[in-house]
Amino acid sequence: MKLSKKTTGRSKSTGTGRRNLMVRFWHVLVALASFELLWVAGSLLKSRRVNRDKAQGSSHLIAAGNVNQFKPGEVKGIPQGGFYLVCQEDGSFLALSKTCTHLGCTVPWNKEKQQFTCPCHGSTFDSTGLVMAAPATRPLDYYPLKIENGEIWVDIAVPVKRDAFASFQIGRS
């Protein structure tokens, strides 16, 4: 291509230079347009999300039962909240999210082995939600809870992420 242009004696003519500029301008324009389209798509998706987040924010505290329904060491799934209520050996309570921190599968509690094992990629967690086997890298999320007159109240608005176990994650009567 280049060679044939040279032989016709139009090499380095301002014509091609101007054409290159036009082409470049054209490319920039296309890139801008695509970027803008993406941005519009993103903001449309975002408006849809805002609607749902508002709807979700309405439910906060749910009652998960009374302290004397639980024995120390017991782990019980609370279906209406999508979490596990763990009664620890010292009688304190911890509300653990059912969602595996690896990629979001629901982890079942294995009573014999006293651990959670994820069916999707095999991550295992102990009864406080700490990682026992990869590929998960974070402990299970928890929900803040408080105990009033023996009633356990769990705030299921947002699961809280954590890197380790700490005493403020639990509730005592």
Binding site: L45, K46, R49, R52, D53, Q56, V158
Partner: peptide, 13 residues
């Protein structure tokens, strides 16, 4: 992730 899911969890959005 939240954009594609239309929220924190997978649902109607």
């Amino acid at each position: 992730m939240t954009l594609l899911r239309g929220g924190q969890e997978v649902g109607s959005e």
